[in-house]
Design a protein around this nucleic acid. Structure first.
Lengths: 241, 241
DNA sequence: CCTTGAGATATGTGATCACACATCTCACAG
DNA sequence: CTGTGAGATGTGTGATCACATATCTCAAGG
């Protein structure tokens, strides 16, 4: 019997093999870790240590880190030292301004597209998941839900290139937002407030109101930014005495 | 005599040594080459070949290329092949839209800043250099002058983070714009038109007219984009028969 | 108890080697 | 003249080693 007989090919369960490289998988893993807040702003990272965690040689990690350096998610803080981008008040404020421009624009685009019930349903689902996560104090899930909501929205309105740029901005501000988990009350208020604002955004999109959509997203970004800035001001004041 | 006597320190001519790494210099060199149009869109690149040109081992080039891949200036077109990002009509159109958002915003910011004669002088100087370069058909110089004009403007209005993002967008569209040199007539018209628009932008900034500044920059971006799109349409039509 | 300095440790950087594999070259058979 | 296939060449990828040096440890001296 010829096992390669094409007439029985439908019986096969062969699936495309994974051709991705090790460095790609390391890169994606680090990226996700940064977005999930598994790294603190300013935290020092070591190529060899990461390689051990991933069970690879340092080589693929070096390449992945080189990419993250280009995206300003990791920076060289000294001659031979790497760290996650730290929180710097003025820098972060600037990133927030750029995010408002780009994400507001993406929201506008999503709102001006033809009505899409599947989109608004998905957005509502993501928003509900944030709410539910907050109630059981599952902050990881709340963070993930928030990210899913925003990216669903931007994917709808934006072209891939816009989404791509926004995602690198999230990569830079991700560890900073995630670090607010250290103050559970603050974190709860930020995202509880966000849920309300997201509802407004969904409403604006379902009504194809571009200005309202942009306004809602910008409010979401700015208000969480202000809370986080206060958080860091208080943190630095406490460590100052 | 104590050579470290601080009272004679002013006699020293010591200067900070260059602590940059090889991979940094390779990265900057490749970046500049891409912006100057020394690579064609879609052109295949080889790590080993570049290493030979730079006179280094392949190692630093690998890291530099990894960064450029993260910036989408270089892409992996196959299992073991790298190339400069090629021209794709729809992708390029999307980048142009994002550029209009960001660079228009930066122009607005520059126009709303306090009057700055040094800035308008510098802009005028850059614009004149484009004009002069066009007259002697020095297209490299025209390209450099155009880049200097835009970046001077964005540096004035934008914060470093905004400039940074814009520069990565130029990195992606750079080889495409530069490739228009192959049609000298087209290239001349694009930049001659640009000089006029730049004058309008300078006027808008000196009058602190935000809307006019944004409009001028957006017109500059869009009109050169349309010309380049026609150029590629014609090129693909010619190669098609 | 505090300061200092030498040794140990850990770091990124660069070079070199091994490997799997895609592509190209070119002689040979049809 | 055309198509084919084997060998040669070149590719990115990953691992390993060597090196200079920043940082940390901890004991000796003040």
């Amino acid at each position: 019997m010829n096992t390669f007989d094409p007439t029985i090919r439908s019986q096969r369960t062969l699936v495309p093999v994974d051709v991705s490289t090790v460095q790609d998988r390391v890169y994606q893993s680090l990226r996700l870790g940064l977005l999930k807040g598994e790294f603190l702003p300013g935290e020092q990272v070591s190529i060899r240590a990461l390689a051990e965690v991933f069970g690879t040689s340092p080589m693929p990690v070096r390449e992945a880190v080189a990419r993250l350096i280009a995206e300003r998610a990791i920076e060289q803080s000294g001659p031979r030292t790497l760290r996650v981008a730290p929180y710097l008040a003025s820098d972060h404020e600037n990133y927030i301004r750029v995010r408002m421009q780009l994400e507001g624009y993406a929201a506008e685009r999503a709102a001006s597209a033809p009505k899409n019930p599947a989109l608004t349903d998905a957005l509502r689902r993501h928003n509900d998941s944030i709410q539910e996560a907050l109630e059981v104090r599952d902050f990881d899930a709340a963070l993930a839900g928030n990210q899913a909501f925003h990216f669903e929205l931007y994917r709808a309105g934006g072209y891939p290139q816009l989404l791509d740029i926004i995602s690198t901005l999230w990569l830079r501000t991700g560890p900073i937002v995630a670090s607010a988990r250290k103050d559970e009350g603050l974190f709860y208020r930020i995202f509880n407030n966000g849920v309300q604002i997201h509802s407004n955004a969904i409403e604006a999109i379902s009504q194809r109101d571009r200005a309202a959509a942009r306004h809602a997203i910008n409010l979401d970004i700015r208000s969480s930014h202000l809370s986080i800035r206060r958080f860091y001001q208080r943190a630095s004041a406490e460590s100052g005495h």
